[in-house]
């Protein structure tokens, strides 16, 4: 794979203009839903990450519209319900959503308007993929991107339940699951995500995960110098880290950012459901089936004997006689 270009380093620098062959192929998969034996990829792509600096975000929604345009979705014109979030939630036509929280900082008594770009976090240990029953409906590339392959999706919604961030949405139109792809189709040809490209303040940057962590360090230092003592990087270890990370001014309280999970991990219920239940369930069912077959083959069947048939006949005849006698009596 010597000649193939690795993932782009940044969305800020100018991406290649010459046509490029796709850089994300089946052989770059490190996980595939409902697939146990996936061949080990021949190469390891550099892990990428999108870094969303919440402290730089002005909530302009350029990312949202870029995402709609690039993915050619068609979100409905809704209504105002008293908030700036529009649509009001992620939908199968809106892979990313600015969530606005008016938070009064108890320490300073100042209002802070926290604006977080919600969307798939591209977990290293993706709960969606774990939950998915359809082979190949969800895949993970060695650069960290978790992608939905809609042709394979059956629309069961298990990914919705598997995801610790409540991200995937099932389309009412085609009954397939949708979420941010991290613009895998753009990244595959050396371009950064559409949202990062559109972001006017570079609140969204994209590059290798390592570079993004370094970039975040600089941002965090800046925030600390401005009095945000708890500024930090949100890269939750509970899901093995994520390929979409946040710089938060209050990293000690992720929940104030429109309920960003404090310590996300794949739910224990999901783990049990997709783990023990499956093994134990299959085992007991097979055992029961095998047991009955064996019993059926080798044990004596429970048969009715001739003698029993006769007993029955006798009983019936007796009853008839009795009855007739009674009738006569009457």
């Amino acid at each position: 794979m010597a000649n193939t270009m690795d993932s782009p380093r940044t969305a800020v620098s100018n991406p290649p203009v010459q046509p490029m062959e796709t850089n994300l192929t089946q052989r770059d998969l490190i996980r595939r839903s409902a697939t146990s034996e996936l061949p080990q990829p021949e190469r390891q792509l550099t892990p990428v990450a999108k870094l969303i600096d919440v402290s730089k975000c002005i909530g302009c929604k350029a990312c949202q519209s870029a995402c709609v345009e690039w993915n050619d979705t068609n979100p409905a014109v809704g209504e105002n319900v008293g908030v700036y979030e529009n649509p009001h939630d992620l939908t199968a036509d809106m892979f990313t959503l600015m969530r606005f929280t008016e938070w009064v900082n108890p320490e300073t008594d100042n209002l802070e308007w926290l604006i977080r770009k919600d969307g798939c976090m591209h977990c290293a240990d993706p709960g969606c993929l774990k939950a998915c029953p359809a082979p190949g409906a969800i895949v993970q590339y060695s650069n960290g991107i978790v992608d939905f392959i809609h042709d394979n999706c059956i629309g069961c919604g298990y990914c919705v339940k598997g995801c610790p961030f409540n991200i995937p949405r099932i389309s009412k139109a085609d009954h397939r699951a949708y979420k941010c792809t991290l613009c895998s189709d753009r990244v595959a040809v050396g371009q950064g995500p559409a949202c990062a490209k559109a972001c006017p303040t570079q609140a969204i940057v994209f590059g290798t995960k390592e570079d993004m962590k370094k970039h975040a360090e600089g941002r965090i230092a800046d925030l600390k110098s401005r009095g945000y003592a708890n500024a930090g990087l949100y890269d939750p270890p509970g899901v093995g880290g994520t390929h979409v990370m946040y710089v938060l001014h209050h990293n000690d309280k992720p929940q104030i950012y429109a309920d960003l999970p404090v310590d996300p991990k794949i739910s224990a219920v999901v783990q049990t459901w997709k783990g023990a239940t499956k093994y134990a369930g299959l085992a007991v069912m097979s055992l029961a089936a095998a047991g009955t077959i064996l019993h059926g083959l080798f044990a004596k069947a429970n048969r009715v004997s001739k003698h029993e048939e006769e007993e029955a006949k006798e009983l019936v005849d007796e009853s008839v006689e009795h009855a007739e006698k009674r009738e006569e009596d009457a």
Binding site: V160, V269, G281
Partner: peptide, 19 residues
């Protein structure tokens, strides 16, 4: 969603049981 997770767990357990 947490309720649904429990539901699916119970559903599959019940399915095994009914089988």
């Amino acid at each position: 969603i947490p309720t649904q997770r429990i539901a699916l767990l119970l559903h599959s357990l019940a399915a095994v049981a009914i089988i």
